[in-house]
């Protein structure tokens, strides 16, 4: 029997070296040899990866492969988890985000995050969006704040649907609207990078399509890192795709290439549905 790509049948250390080009010109975020530990357990194993400007990069991989963990390293959301330790360098525009002197609050304003389950605050739609600008002191007058809220909701494609009920609770919206509200809330602080942790996994196909359309538009202004379990979604949305496997970054490449002709056997097995 012939083999498609020359490989050993067992996965040795050599096979864990990342395949494909991990660097980009003028990256927004530069990760070098990032390891993450939960206590004694190693969750991420030496990931080196650049995240470009105005690109959507998708992270795919089986559950527990570390893609979400890696995503959360990028704005230090892992800080809140006890026993979580990150080594290696993560540079945002050349600034080490794990620098002891760096304040995590402005970092999170720069690198926003959208979660798997829509999690609006149990407050009004207006308050949800206004909260970020308010705590960061981005606006000084009420009318400025109104403007920021409107602009954010417009960018998130939600303005027309909610402009007449800004004072109603955000939790009363439908799932897809809630998720777009969460995106609007993130945009309102003016981030450069938006991290998305399976943003559509709790949504129905129509809501998913709307959120995807939104992500596609947002690419013009932001770098977007999206973790997804849907390969079709990764293929639709992203320009580059990274495949994680048991804490290793196995392969990075242009999305077209990853989905037609992955170079690594593990990537191939995963995306063709031969995993496990």
């Amino acid at each position: 029997m012939q083999t498609l790509i020359k490989q050993q049948s067992t996965i040795g250390a050599a096979d864990r070296r990342t395949v494909g080009r991990v660097t980009v010109e003028n990256p927004r975020i530069r990760c070098r040899n990032v390891h993450v530990y939960y206590g004694e357990k190693r969750a991420i194993n030496g990931v080196t990866l650049d995240i470009g400007r105005n690109e959507v990069i998708a992270m795919i991989g089986p559950s527990g492969c570390g893609k979400s963990t890696f995503l959360r390293c990028l704005n230090r959301m892992n800080d809140a988890i006890d026993g979580c330790r990150v080594t290696g360098d993560i540079l945002l525009d050349g600034q080490d985000i794990y620098d002891k002197r760096l304040d995590v609050v402005p970092l999170r304003a720069q690198v926003g995050i959208v979660f798997q389950k829509p999690n609006p605050f149990p407050k009004s739609i207006y308050e949800n969006v206004a909260y970020g600008p308010r705590i960061h002191g981005l606006t000084s007058t009420r009318s400025e704040l109104d403007e920021v809220v409107e602009l954010s909701l417009q960018k998130a494609g939600l303005w027309d649907e909610v402009k007449d009920r800004l004072n109603q609770p955000g939790t009363g919206l439908s799932g897809g609207q809630q998720q777009r509200l969460c995106i609007a809330r993130t945009i309102a602080v003016g981030p450069e990078v938006i991290l998305m942790d399976e943003p559509c996994s709790a949504l129905d196909p129509i809501a998913t399509a709307r959120v995807e359309a939104l992500i596609d538009e947002l690419r013009e202004h932001y770098s977007i890192v999206i973790v997804t379990h849907s390969m079709q979604q990764a293929a639709r949305l992203s320009q580059r795709t990274a495949y994680f496997h048991l804490g290793d970054l196995i392969e990075v490449g242009m999305t077209n290439q990853i989905f037609t002709n992955p170079r690594h056997r593990l990537t191939e097995d995963y995306i063709t549905g031969r995993f496990g």
């Binding site: 498609l4 390969m231 079709q232 293929a235 990853i258 989905f259 037609t260 002709n261 992955p262 990537t267 191939e268 995306i271 063709t272 549905g273």
Partner: peptide, 10 residues
């Protein structure tokens, strides 16, 4: 049904 990818697609 399967939305084949990679070598399946090829």
């Amino acid at each position: 049904k399967r939305q084949p990818m990679a070598k399946d697609l090829r």
